[in-house]
């Protein structure tokens, strides 16, 4: 089974717990997968404020909150929902093929 072009395989869909945040790496890039209400989201794993790993963060109402100073990022768009971060979090596209979650190498534009 080959990955869709520009995508990398991360994990089986079934292995990701509901409400879970799973860290993974693409090359040296830290990222996270989130499963919420069955939907999968992929985002950068490092807060855009200072250095904090979002895998240690908290989910609430489709927002992921940074563990250090409470910046919030919309899971779907990466947009900042609460400061101190002012730059959006890069988000990645998802494809699920044969029960495997693939994530785009490059962040979604705009």
């Amino acid at each position: 089974m080959t990955a869709p072009k520009g995508y990398v395989a991360v994990k089986r869909y079934d292995e990701i717990p509901e409400g879970g945040i799973v860290p993974f790496r693409v090359d040296d890039d830290e990222r996270i997968l989130v499963k919420l209400e069955g939907e999968i989201y992929a985002l950068s794993g490092i807060c855009t404020h200072e250095y904090a790993e979002l895998a240690e963060g908290e989910l609430e109402d489709h927002v992921i909150y940074c563990p250090l100073h409470g910046s919030g990022f919309d899971l779907k768009t990466g947009k900042v929902t609460s400061l101190p971060a002012t730059e959006p979090l890069p988000v990645y596209d998802i494809q699920i093929v044969d029960g495997v979650v693939y994530v785009s190498r490059e962040p979604r534009q705009g």
Binding site: E56, E58, E60, Y65, P67, L68, G70
Partner: peptide, 10 residues
């Protein structure tokens, strides 16, 4: 103990 902040806040 940052992980307990938001549950505590709730």
């Amino acid at each position: 103990r940052p992980r307990e902040l938001r549950p505590g806040r709730r």
